[in-house]
Design a protein around this nucleic acid. Structure first.
Length: 535
RNA sequence: GCGCCCGUGGUGAAACGGAUAUCACGACGGUCUUCGAAACCGUUAUUGGGGGUUCGAAUCCCUCCGGGCGCACCA
């Protein structure tokens, strides 16, 4: 990674407490990379930034990594990388192939990431679907960095919501048998649960002998399997499904309650047991863990679950939740204290719910009211790549308004096609070129035009992007980068030729084409979209 | 009422406190007798208002306005 090399070189010069970064420059006029380190250092040393920059440059100038270093705008340091270094990196891509972009920073470390964890009372809707591609690409990015990743999902299969699910299913069941039935208060609206009952009736032989419990169990499994199927369509597979019912039946929930109590983090009030830790995470916000009727709440199981996460020997624990859970976050953070886990190593990442519109009308995403747009519907309508790429295109804190009609209409203009088309174009050149041998000792100095060199610069940025995602979880950078890389390639394609050029240029360019294909393939894999052969 | 998040071209978004705010869509005007025109090249903004901190603010602080989401013996 060139960026990292520059960073190291500069770090050797400036004091440790100076914080700075090396920035990739899209537009070459401020160099290939730049830094504003001189401003920070100048402040500390009470000198002029331009003087400080000059001192830094004098030390770096001899380094063969650079072709040129300049001071600009009173203190920015702009680096131009030697062309041979850039070309050398290109060879690196061909050498590493599928492993290009990976690094070993997380080698030997383990991380567990929980995401989606949708309630099993209905299909996954677009509102919470965002957590899928987000959590998944985060997992992939960590894998690229050498971490061992556990993808986990909490199946909330007990509690009041499940009772309501059962009641609603029972209503449909009785109705289908021709009995008089009234829709349960607070039951789940919509036709979906009727479909579940239809499926249940197909399965059960003795239709008269069905109990609420059996129906509920069937419904839970049915909905869960369907949801897993939808996630799988988006390329998401979990390593661990933790069922809340198992946490309870194994005694882990009770054990967690006992320990919490013993540690003095509870209090009793009106017959219920409350979580009430005394630390900076929680001022006056408390939560019930055992109801006055003796039943543990969801939070009791969540304590057990997080205890398990914290004590499992993992180096990092990440939860990806919808922002509607943000009130829950301080309580979870308090658990790190309780179980002696480094709070720096536990991160709750929140994403804003996707709001859906039909024209000007906002569709409220409610399972209870049955008013939601399912992820499956969207996948059917516009396809996986489109859905994944779109959901991953904006920062998780952005409030996305999804206009369903517009999305359907615009699906063919989604940037994902722009990106995939670039890859297909590269591929097609490779195919047209027929058989050729890639010689690793090839002379790449024939790659010298602006388009050649910019494409190389963009390609070798890939490992840097991966590295950045790991450090700040901003995986939407990946789709952004994909669009930029595609543009670099399309520009190259318009202005330069491969086939028909004289042999030396052809050899060098076909090398560049192969490198482009490799980076796109690796990138698509990390984003979680298809690697198309043609379009 | 209290807390969390957001406000950037006509639209949807991007931008570790950095330089002339970046893309896509839409609109208008150009580019195919050579590797796929699903592409390329032009034109289209004083980052919701007002203060402050800083050499430098879309970004940090205060305040106002507008929007989303939480504040249960639900999960």
């Amino acid at each position: 990674m060139i960026k990292e090399e520059i960073l190291k070189l500069v770090k050797n010069i400036v004091p440790e407490d100076i914080h700075f970064d090396i920035e990739f420059q899209e537009d070459g006029k401020f160099g290939h990379y730049s830094t504003s380190v001189a401003f920070a250092l100048a402040k500390k040393e009470k000198k002029l930034p331009s003087i400080v920059a000059k001192e830094i440059i004098e030390i770096l100038q001899k380094n063969t990594l650079f072709e040129k270093i300049e001071i600009a705008a009173g203190g920015f340091i702009n680096f131009w990388i030697s062309k041979d270094v850039l070309r050398g990196e290109l060879k690196n891509i061909l050498e590493k192939k599928g492993a290009y972009g990976q690094n070993k920073k997380g080698s030997g470390k383990k991380i567990r990431i929980e995401y989606v964890s949708a309630n099993p009372t209905g299909p996954i809707h677009i509102g919470n679907a965002r957590g899928g591609p987000y959590g998944e690409s985060l997992a992939r990015v960590y894998e690229e960095s050498g971490y061992e990743v556990l993808r986990e999902y909490l199946h909330n299969d007990v509690g009041g919501q499940i009772d309501k699910l059962g009641e609603t299913l029972w209503y449909w069941y009785e109705k289908k048998l021709g009995k008089d039935a009234t829709f349960p208060e607070g039951g789940y609206q919509g036709e979906y649960l009727e479909e579940v009952v239809t499926a249940a009736l197909k399965k059960f032989e003795n239709k008269e002998n069905i109990t609420v419990a059996r129906l509920t169990e069937f419904g839970l499994d049915y909905i869960f399997e369907n949801n897993m199927g939808v996630l799988k369509r988006m390329g998401i597979l979990f390593d661990l499904i933790r069922k809340e019912s198992e946490l309870i039946s194994s005694g882990k929930t009770q054990e967690a309650i006992d320990i919490t109590k013993k540690k003095g983090a509870t209090k009793e009030n009106e017959g219920a047991l409350w979580f009430s830790p005394k630390d900076e995470f929680l001022e006056d916000r408390e939560a019930v863990i055992v109801k006055s009727n003796g039943r543990p709440t969801y939070f009791a199981s969540d304590i057990a679950y997080h205890k398990e996460k914290f004590e499992s020997g993992y180096d990092f624990v990440i939860d990806v939740f919808g922002s509607n859970h943000h009130g829950h976050v301080p309580k979870l953070q308090a658990l790190t204290k309780l179980f002696g886990y480094d709070s720096e190593k536990f991160k709750v990442l929140l994403y804003q719910f996707v709001r859906v519109k039909r024209g000007n009308e906002v569709i409220k995403m409610s399972k209870r009211a049955g008013t939601y747009v399912t992820t499956e519907e969207l996948l059917d309508e516009v396809g996986r790549d489109n859905v994944v790429f779109s959901l991953l295109s904006s920062a998780p804190t952005t409030h996305i308004d999804f206009d369903l009609e517009a999305v359907k209409q615009k699906s063919m203009q989604n940037p994902v096609y722009y990106v995939q088309y670039a890859y297909v174009r590269a591929r097609s050149i490779g195919e047209k070129a027929g058989t050729f041998v890639l010689d690793p000792t090839i002379d790449l100095s024939y790659l010298h035009t602006n388009e050649d060199l910019f494409l190389i610069r963009k390609l070798i940025q890939f490992p840097e992007i991966i590295d950045m995602c790991v450090s700040d979880f901003e995986v939407h950078r990946l789709t952004r980068y994909a669009t930029e890389l595609a543009r670099a390639f399309h520009n190259f394609y318009e202005k330069e030729h491969v086939i028909g050029e004289k042999e030396e240029i052809f050899q060098a360019r076909i090398f560049l084409i192969e490198a482009t294909k490799i980076v796109f393939e690796n990138l698509f894999r990390v984003i979680g979209i298809n690697i198309p052969e043609s379009m």
